[in-house]
Design a protein around this nucleic acid. Structure first.
Lengths: 242, 242
DNA sequence: TAGTGGTCTAGACCACCTG
DNA sequence: AGGTGGTCTAGACCACTAA
């Protein structure tokens, strides 16, 4: 048996999707809905909260609950470098892992002071038996917090940074673009220079907005696609069986 | 003055971020929190609901509320073809808009029967004064539902499809990859053949999962980057001022 | 002033899990 | 049996909006 608040949410959304209520319209007031379902305010509000979460409603104090156009332009996506290897630890080859002086771009991205050093890590990622991506990552070097080679090889960058910085949670900023392969990347990826690459740039920040890691993943265009769906829809699947 | 439920949520999240409570730990039970804050169950639960929504908690009936690792691999992104033009209607040039027989790929993507026709639309998108993307879109042809040329030119594909199919909401499935420009695309985008492109493939589905539109946007790699952030973080900004 | 949503109370009963 | 989260009640008071 579905809870009542759930049924209220479904009824409303079905009226929206059926066209009886249109975006911009005002829903019946909460007290009206209480009467309609012979229930109390908290229950009605619990139902409406589901819809608000899904982006179907906007509540305006003193006025009412308005139906909203759902967003088609907000997309959610799953990305994790280790996805490329389909989870096979054998799919990762550590090329380098050193402590070094950062070049200006890296220093800038990590907002580091002049003399600070960084940990640099270069990995090749294989999907099946084929090389698929070259991954280069940087993080500020923190004295006395060594990285264990076995660990760093197989975990995603975000986890690595969280562990290294002893952080619970990190903000992950990702930039996606296409580029042509240069000499180095091309040879590592066994493609010809100039071939198209999907480049995924990642910057990790602490809760205080301090950059904790930065790097790029150069992906062979024949090995990686990213998939995203409108956030709206994900919510639906989780919250309402539509 | 912040509402109490909000303060409860903040207190808990600060304990999480401060390390006093770790992922996997059990929160104090709801009745304990009621006592601690001298409040009632509904208020405590309202606070915990915020955290659950943000992915910080998992509630297990009969057991308790567990602290969760935040997801670093779920990203949210904004994408809308019209973003490319920075909202300038002058930034769109309609090259073609015709009713035609679909080629096999299009028919397959739209799950169309043999003889069905499609509306095809080709547009050039300019950012500032420079050509930035070539956009090709297909939708099933529905008799008696003409598209008004002026309309189709300037609205995003998702809106167009919603309007044409008289749908309230559409599911938007996006695939992102890199590719080399072929002759046609290269000439339209004023780049040399083989240049890297960012290709954004869009499929729009009705609530019943029926394909309502499909197409690709070929973007000059020097004109478009996509940005995404961990979903976690967006929630924080909306729900808690951290 | 009357209606709206936002917050909150002090209970209740249920299904679930553990000893 | 006793504790947990999940649902729900029948009120209350507040801030906001509109006429």
């Amino acid at each position: 048996m579905q809870p009542l608040y759930y049924r209220i949410a479904e009824d409303v959304i079905n009226q929206i999707k059926g066209g009886q209520i249109k975006p911009g319209d005002l829903l019946p007031s909460e007290s009206q809905l209480c009467a309609e379902y012979s229930t109390s305010k908290m229950t009605v509000r619990q139902g409406l909260a589901l819809l608000a979460r899904g982006g179907y409603l906007r509540s305006v104090p003193g006025k009412g609950n308005f139906v909203e156009y759902p967003r088609y332009d907000l997309l959610t996506m799953h990305f994790d470098e280790m996805d490329i290897t389909s989870g096979y630890p054998q799919g990762v080859k550590l090329l380098e892992a050193t402590i070094m002086d950062p070049d200006p771009q890296v220093r800038d991205e990590l907002s580091l002071p002049k003399k600070a050093k960084v940990i640099m890590m270069k990995r090749l990622l294989y999907s099946e038996t084929q090389v698929a991506a070259l991954d280069i990552k940087f993080m500020p070097y923190i004295k006395g917090k060594p990285l264990i080679e076995k660990e760093i090889q197989y975990i995603p960058f975000a986890k690595m940074v969280a562990k290294h910085g002893e952080l619970f949670s990190v903000k992950n900023e990702v930039t996606i673009y296409a580029a042509a392969a240069d000499q180095e990347v091309a040879s590592k990826l066994e493609i010809s220079p100039g071939s198209p690459l999907l480049v995924i740039e990642q910057k990790l920040l602490s809760a205080e907005q301090k950059p904790m890691g930065w790097g790029k993943t150069f992906c062979r265009s024949d090995c990686l696609q990213l998939h995203a769906v409108s956030a709206q829809y994900i919510q639906d699947q989780k919250l309402l069986n539509l």
